[in-house]
Simulated scan of single mutants.
Amino acid sequence: MAEILLSEAEKTFILHGVEEGFRCDGRMRLDYRPMEVETDVVSHASGSARLRLANTDILVGVKTEIDTPYPERPREGKIEFFVDCSANATPAFEGRGGEELGTEISNSLATAYQSSQTFDLTALCILPGQQCWKLYIDILILECGGNLFDAVSLAVKAALHNTRVPKVKGACLDGGTVDLQLSDDPYDCCRLDVSDAPCLVTLCKIGDHCVVDPTAEEETCSSGSVVIAITEKSLVTSVFKTGVGSFHPQTLIDILKVGQTIGLSVNKALRAALLEEEQQGRKKECFGFLK
């Protein structure tokens, strides 16, 4: 993460506040900052979304392409994540400063989505072993205000919810090659089921306590964080740690329980915001949630 320079007095102030259960912006330890989400913001993408979490601003675009399935998974489609950290997001991303963080985020998403109980890749299969849909998910970090893992995962889920996959009207074999006939109607498409797509929840350790949705300043004061990928059905698909600090086994167990509860709330809040946006008739508004 991009660290912010803080004096020892500022770090002590943040640490003591977390110990007392209060944070600099008035939140409690397990409170998120308000978020806003907007979908269908990139006209030439199959699906897109923009999510703002306080000062963190994420843009996600999804592109569909026909590809050949993996030999070991002949009945599944493919999904790939690419993260680009804009140099305007923070000075730490200038040059190649954001490459390592971008790789870490894309790998965490790939791990979270690899379970067959999360995102159904079989729905992307066209002809088993021969043709499938491949989803390219491009993530652009426009501004970094802390808690990138959570914000990116929420933006990805919103973009997948907005994605339309063209329908295949027919497929035939012509001399050993596959000839696909796609619908000419741009509105003749399929929606993706994202009900089991996971969201990432970061629990950041500051002193002897953990907080959710850390700001950039709080991340600077942290010795380590645990990131949990969780679905709407309370299924944990991956857990990993960032930072150099360590966690006591019992503390880790307690964190997982808290993360499950928080993850359920975040998933439900995002789904409610996306449904509200659709019901409003696509008026190009940002819909806030977790206020």
Rank of each mutant, 00 (worst) to 15 (best):
G175Q: 05
I255C: 12
A272P: 02
N267S: 10
V201K: 12
G224M: 03
E232M: 08
N162G: 11
V178F: 00
K268H: 07
A171Q: 10
L264Y: 06
T242H: 08
T242P: 04
G175E: 08
C189F: 00
L203F: 06
Y187I: 02
G263E: 08
L180A: 05
K167E: 15
G176R: 07
D196T: 06
V168P: 10
V194Q: 10
I253A: 12
P214A: 00
Q260I: 07
N267A: 08
D188T: 05
V236N: 10
S225F: 01
P166W: 00
D174R: 06
V226P: 13
S183H: 11
C199F: 00
D254G: 08
G243L: 01
T202S: 14
V226C: 14
T215R: 08
I230Q: 11
T215E: 10
R164T: 09
L252I: 02
L264G: 14
C221K: 06
C221P: 12
F240R: 14
V211C: 07
V194E: 14
H161Q: 11
A269I: 00
I206P: 15
L160E: 13
I206D: 13
A171K: 04
D196M: 11
A269S: 14
N162M: 02
H209Y: 04
K233W: 01
S246W: 03
G207P: 13
T261Y: 04
R271Y: 08
V156S: 04
D196I: 00
G170P: 11
T202N: 13
S238F: 00
F247C: 03
